[in-house]
Design a protein around this nucleic acid. Structure first.
Length: 293
DNA sequence: GGTAGACCTGGACGC
DNA sequence: GCGTCCAGGTCTACC
């Protein structure tokens, strides 16, 4: 079955998919050169579906291979809306960047939204798996979690969901260290899965939190494995742009943009975007950098 | 509060 | 082939 979801304009599915590397991580799937995004997703009913998203005028086309119940369709609609941030709008930011050549392109390209996973749990795990490793390592670890611990499509054992907290909480740390390939990150992910699965931590509640960004940051920093970089990255995903996700890549970008390649520290990165206030993270993320690696 | 040192892993690099 | 370094950092112990 297929249906279309409206988005606040301007909207571009392609812009969301390209907003950061998440679309390259399982169980997201995209074919190069073809607009759209695929994903295997487990619904509350326990059913595992193959979800496909495509461009539609001012919105997104949602397709699932088989008919869904009304409740399942509502659930998919909610998840897609969150993943693609369909209700986010950037009018104030677009007005602000009109005079900045490095950012003025954003409105025409409908940029600003960042692709999210359906749950904050998945995004926290994936963010932890980006730390102290190369991007190839992150892809390998995420794929291992999906392949070994996710739920399979009924007609394709090779295509699986991202495992939920309940599925990871029952594992041994050794399973995650070795089979999952997480190494020293295994206890962080296991502790997160167990506190969420037990109900001790309402992680998904943070998606709707109205806490000030600094308070929300404290909540995220309380999670083992989440430091300053990871917290800022997660705040961006939550639509809060008050903090910069300063990592080694950010240092390179700022070094080449304003310091002729000389080494810089986090202070220089912070200073470069201080004037953007509560939009500083977004300005950093979509800056038209001269350095491309 | 500030700062070394350790931490899984695998690819890149130099020898 | 082998050793070293380091990558989209974080935690802990110690000062």
């Amino acid at each position: 079955m297929e249906w279309t979801l409206p988005a606040r304009v301007p909207f571009s599915l392609d812009a969301v998919v390209r907003s950061h590397g998440w679309a390259q991580l399982a169980p997201f799937r995209r074919k190069e050169g073809i607009a759209g995004l695929g994903r295997v997703e487990r619904l509350a009913s326990g059913r595992v579906v193959d979800l496909r998203l495509g461009e539609a005028p001012d919105g997104v086309r949602v397709a699932v291979e088989a008919p869904l119940t009304d409740a399942e369709q509502v659930e998919v609609t909610e998840k897609v809306g969150w993943m693609l941030a369909l209700d986010q709008e950037f009018e104030a930011f677009y007005a602000l960047v009109q005079q900045e050549p490095k950012l003025a392109h954003m409105e025409a390209k409908a940029q600003g939204r960042l692709l999210r996973s359906p749950t904050l749990f998945e995004d926290v795990v994936k963010t932890i798996l980006t730390t102290n490793t190369a991007w190839g390592g992150t892809k390998r670890m995420v794929q291992a979690l999906v392949s070994n611990f996710g739920s399979a499509l009924a007609d394709d054992e090779d295509r699986r969901t991202f495992p939920g907290p309940e599925q990871l909480a029952v594992l041994d740390e050794a399973d995650l260290r070795t089979t999952g390939g997480l190494g020293y990150r295994a206890p962080y992910v296991l502790a997160l899965a167990r506190t969420v699965a037990s109900g001790d931590l309402d992680l998904e509640g943070l998606r709707r939190s109205e806490l000030p960004a600094a308070e929300l940051r404290k909540e995220l920093l309380a999670l083992k494995g989440v430091g300053a970089y990871a917290a800022a990255n997660l705040l961006m995903i939550l639509g809060r742009y008050d903090f910069l996700p300063v990592d080694s890549w950010a240092l390179k970008l700022v070094s080449h943009e304003w310091y002729e390649g000389e080494p810089v520290g986090a202070e220089e990165v912070e200073a470069a975007f201080a004037d953007w206030g509560t939009w500083r993270g977004l300005a950093y993320w979509f800056w038209d950098w001269s350095y491309t690696g």
